[in-house]
Write a protein that binds this DNA or RNA. Structure first.
Length: 692
DNA sequence: CATAGTTGTCATCTC
DNA sequence: ACGAGATGACAACTA
C-alpha cells in the first residue's frame, strides 16, 4: 500500500503528506504536515490526522507562550470517519464532543514532520523533526509566537531565535506534555487515550509534563536500544549501517511523542527548513538528541519524503527487498526534491528559505479535507503512475533525481498531467494536482452543481486530477472556464488501487460469485452495484442513473463532448445498456405480472358469471316444472269434467284434447292425433288461450 | 440444506 | 440497417 498525497486541513493551511510504507511486514506511516501561514487558516482549530493506522492528533497552540503546547490524541479510531462527510469535520466534531478545548491557532507558521510508525504492537512513532516558522511576513502571530514555555531556552520570542531552528534544538528540550500519549504505543493507544485531556496551562501541569517527558524519554531510549538489537527487515538492517540521516529509518525505530514535536515547534525559530536536518540525527534516541545537536537536523524533509516514496517503490515493486536506493543519490539531492515534492514554485527560496509561507499556496482558501482513508480511495492515480514510472525507470538503480525530474515534467508523456509548473502549490506534482484541483473543486463548488460533484458514481467528486488535466491547458481556463463548465475533466482516468480492485473484480471475475468478489470490497463499495463500482473504477464522472436515464441525444452528446477512452465509452454504453435492460426487464416483469393478475381477474369474473347462469338455469327449470305441473293438473281437471255420449267419464289415457283453428275444442282419440296435428293442436290451444 | 421468489444480465426477437 | 424496447432463459442472491 502506498500513497502520497497532500492533505488540507479544515483551515486549508495544513498541508499533509502521508506516505504509507509497508516493507518487509513493517508498516510505517509517515505523515508530513506543513503548517501554513495564518491567513491560510480559515478555521480556528488545527488538527493533525493520524495515518491510517495511527490515531489522530490535535494541535493546540499555547496562548501563553505562543507556541504549540499540546499534542492530543484525539481518538484511536479517529480515522474511522464517515467516508462521505469531510473527515476532519467529523474529527472536529469528535473533538468537540470530547470537550477538548481548542484554541484558535490562527498564527501558525510552521511545518513539521511527523513520522508515525504503526501497524503492529511494535510499531513506534517517530518524531522526525519539526520546526516552527514565523508567519505574518516572516513573523509569528501572537497566537503561537512568543516565548514557548516548552522551550524556555528559546527566549521571549522564539521567532527571534536563530535562523536555524536547530538553534532551538540546542536549547534544552522543553518539558513534554504529559497529555501527549500518542507515540509510544505505535498508534495503538489505549482507550483512555480516546478522551483527550484539556489543555492545561498551569505551571504545575508543566512540571508534571516535564517529569513525564523525562521518564518517557528514558523509556524511549531504552526501547530504542532494544529496537536496535531487534531483528529488522533486510532493508532496514542494511540502512542501519548507513549514516542515520533518514527520516523513515528513524521513524521506524524511534519513538517520539508529539509533544516533543510541539516543543520543537514552539521553540523553533523562523526558518524551520534551515534547522531541520535529519542528517546524522540521533533520532532513535530521543528528539532531545536531535534538538541538542545542531547538526542533527541538517538533513531535509524532502529527503525523508522522497525516501519514503522510494521505500514504497521498494516494497511494491521489489518485494524481495532487493531494491536499494543509492544513499549518495539520496543525500545528494537535499531540498530540490523537497521542492519538487512540496512545491513546484520556480523559486525554491520562496518556499524554503523564506520563513513566510504565505502565498505558498494560492489556493489556500480552496481546501478540502481528506483523510488518509480518502487517500486510499481518492489517491490520485497519477501518483501511482509516477511511482510506477519511478520503478520502471529505476529498478535497482534508483535515482531520486531522475524521479524528481519525472515529477517535474508537467507534460510528461507518461500520461501524467502533473501541471505543477502551472501552479505554485503542490507537494508532489500529483499532490499538487490534488491540492489544487481539490481546492479548485471547492472554490468552484458554487459554480458546480451538486449533480456534478455528487452525482458521480460512488459519490466521487470530479477527480482532481482530471481538473488538473484540464488545467494544464491554461490557467485561465482552469480558473475561469472551469466554473462555468460542469465537468472539464480529462477523463482519461487511470486506475487507482481501489479502482484496480474494482476493475479487477468487475472484469476479471465475470463468473465468480459476488460473495467472493465482495470480499475484496470495502464497505463503501460493497453498497454499490457492479456497474457503479465499475464506473467508479474508471472514474467515470457520471452517475449510473445519469447514464441510464439520460436521453439519447444527451447521452450521445455527452459521449462526444468529453474526452473518454474507449474503455470508458464502452463501459458507459454497457452501463446504459444494462441499465436500460434492467429497467426493461423490470417493466416486462411488471407487465407480465399485470397480465397474470388481469387473467386471474378474468377467471374470477367468468367463474362468477358461470355461477349466475347456473342459478338462472335452475330457476328456469323450476318454473318450467311448475308450469308443467299446472298444465297437467288442468288437463286432468278438464277430462274429469268431460262425459261421452253415454255420460261416462272420458279416459285421458285414450283421448286427448285438440283445439281446432276456429277455437273449438275437440276430444280426439290419441291414436288419431298425429305429431303434426298435436303441434297444431298445441298452437291452436295457444291461440285460443290468447284469445281467451 | 433445500426451495421459491427476486433481480440482474444476456441473447434474441420485434417494432 | 440500426436502435430501442420486449421477453425468455439463466444465474446469483435472498428469505
Amino acid at each position: 500500500m502506498k500513497y502520497l498525497k497532500p492533505w488540507w486541513s479544515d483551515g486549508g493551511s495544513l498541508l499533509h503528506l502521508t506516505i504509507l510504507l509497508s516493507l518487509a511486514g513493517l508498516r510505517l506511516d509517515l505523515d508530513l504536515y506543513l503548517l501554513l501561514p495564518p491567513r491560510t487558516l480559515l478555521g480556528d482549530e488545527l488538527l493533525l490526522s493520524g495515518g491510517p493506522t495511527s490515531p489522530a492528533y490535535a494541535l493546540s497552540p499555547f496562548p501563553a507562550s505562543g507556541g504549540w503546547r499540546r499534542a492530543e490524541l484525539l481518538h484511536p479510531k479517529g480515522r474511522e470517519r464517515d467516508p462521505v462527510a469531510p473527515p476532519e469535520s467529523q474529527l472536529l466534531r469528535e473533538v468537540r464532543a470530547l470537550g477538548v478545548p481548542f484554541i484558535p491557532c490562527t498564527r501558525v507558521d510552521a511545518w513539521l514532520v511527523h513520522s508515525v510508525a504503526a501497524g503492529d504492537a511494535d510499531g513506534a512513532h517517530a518524531l522526525l523533526g519539526a520546526a516552527a516558522a514565523a508567519s505574518s511576513a516572516g513573523g509569528v502571530g501572537a497566537g503561537v509566537n512568543g516565548v514557548s514555555q516548552a522551550a524556555p531556552g528559546s527566549g521571549g520570542n522564539p521567532r527571534a531565535a536563530p535562523s536555524s531552528p536547530l538553534a532551538a534544538g540546542e536549547e534544552e528540550k522543553a518539558p513534554a506534555e504529559p497529555t501527549a500519549q500518542v507515540s509510544d504505543a505505535g498508534g495503538h493507544a489505549s482507550e483512555e487515550n480516546e478522551v483527550l485531556r484539556a489543555v492545561d496551562h498551569s505551571s504545575q501541569h508543566e512540571e508534571n509534563e516535564q517529569r513525564a517527558s523525562t521518564q518517557r524519554e528514558k523509556s524511549l531510549q531504552q526501547k530504542n536500544e532494544e529496537n536496535k538489537v531487534a531483528d529488522k527487515p533486510a532493508w532496514e538492517a542494511e540502512k542501519t549501517s548507513e549514516p542515520r540521516n533518514e527520516i523513515h529509518r528513524n521513524g521506524t525505530d524511534t519513538v517520539f511523542s508529539l509533544e516533543d514535536l510541539f516543543q520543537l515547534l514552539s521553540s523553533q525559530p523562523e526558518n524551520p527548513l534551515e534547522g531541520i536536518s535529519l542528517g546524522d540525527s540521533p533520532l532513535p534516541g530521543s528528539i532531545n538528541d536531535g534538538m541538542n545537536s545542531p547538526t542533527h537536523y541538517n538533513g531535509n524533509y524532502s529527503q525523508a519524503v522522497s525516501h519514503d516514496v522510494n521505500l514504497h517503490e521498494a516494497m511494491l515493486l521489489c518485494p524481495d527487498n532487493t531494491f536499494r536506493r543509492d544513499p549518495l543519490a539520496r543525500t545528494s539531492q537535499p531540498q530540490e526534491l523537497f521542492l519538487q515534492l512540496n512545491s513546484p514554485l520556480t523559486n525554491p527560496e520562496q518556499t524554503l528559505s523564506g520563513t513566510n509561507l504565505t502565498g505558498f499556496l494560492p489556493f489556500d482558501n480552496q481546501v478540502r479535507d481528506l483523510t488518509n482513508q480518502d487517500l486510499l480511495y481518492d489517491l490520485d492515480v497519477n501518483i501511482f503512475d509516477e511511482i510506477n514510472l519511478m520503478s520502471l525507470a529505476t529498478e535497482e538503480g534508483f535515482d531520486p533525481m531522475e524521479i524528481s525530474q519525472l515529477f517535474e515534467e508537467p507534460d510528461s508523456d507518461s500520461g501524467l498531467s502533473l501541471n505543477s509548473s502551472h501552479n505554485s502549490t503542490s507537494v508532489t506534482k500529483s499532490n499538487s494536482s490534488h491540492s489544487i484541483c481539490e481546492g479548485a473543486s471547492l472554490s468552484s463548488s458554487e459554480s458546480l452543481s451538486h449533480r456534478d460533484l455528487e452525482g458521480a458514481v460512488g459519490g466521487y467528486y470530479p477527480e482532481p486530477t482530471k481538473l488538473c488535466h484540464m488545467d494544464h491547458r491554461s490557467d485561465s481556463h482552469f480558473h475561469g472556464d472551469f466554473a462555468f463548465q460542469p465537468v472539464l475533466h480529462n477523463h482519461t482516468y487511470h486506475l487507482q488501487p481501489s479502482a484496480l480492485e474494482s476493475t479487477y473484480e468487475s472484469f476479471s471475475w465475470p463468473g465468480k460469485s459476488q460473495k467472493i468478489r465482495r470480499g475484496y470490497l470495502n464497505d463503501t463499495d460493497r453498497n454499490l452495484s457492479r456497474d457503479e463500482r465499475r464506473a467508479k473504477a474508471l472514474h467515470i464522472p457520471f452517475s449510473v442513473d445519469e447514464i441510464v436515464q439520460m436521453p439519447v441525444d444527451s447521452f450521445n452528446s455527452m459521449l462526444s463532448r468529453y474526452y473518454l477512452t474507449d474503455f470508458q465509452v464502452s463501459l458507459i454504453r454497457d452501463i446504459r445498456r444494462r441499465g436500460k435492460n434492467k429497467v426493461a426487464a423490470q417493466n416486462c416483469r411488471r407487465r407480465k405480472l399485470d397480465v397474470i393478475l388481469n387473467l386471474e381477474d378474468d377467471v374470477c369474473n367468468l367463474q362468477a358469471k358461470k355461477e349466475t347462469l347456473k342459478r338462472e338455469r335452475s330457476q328456469c327449470h323450476k318454473a318450467i316444472n311448475i308450469m308443467k305441473q299446472k298444465l297437467h293438473d288442468l288437463y286432468h281437471d278438464v277430462f274429469s269434467r268431460l262425459r261421452d255420449d253415454e255420460g261416462r267419464p272420458v279416459n285421458p289415457n285414450q283421448y286427448a284434447l285438440q283445439c281446432s283453428r276456429d277455437g273449438s275444442v275437440l276430444i280426439v282419440p290419441k291414436e288419431l292425433v298425429t305429431p303434426g296435428q298435436k303441434k297444431e293442436n298445441q298452437k291452436g290451444k295457444r291461440k285460443s288461450e290468447r284469445r281467451n
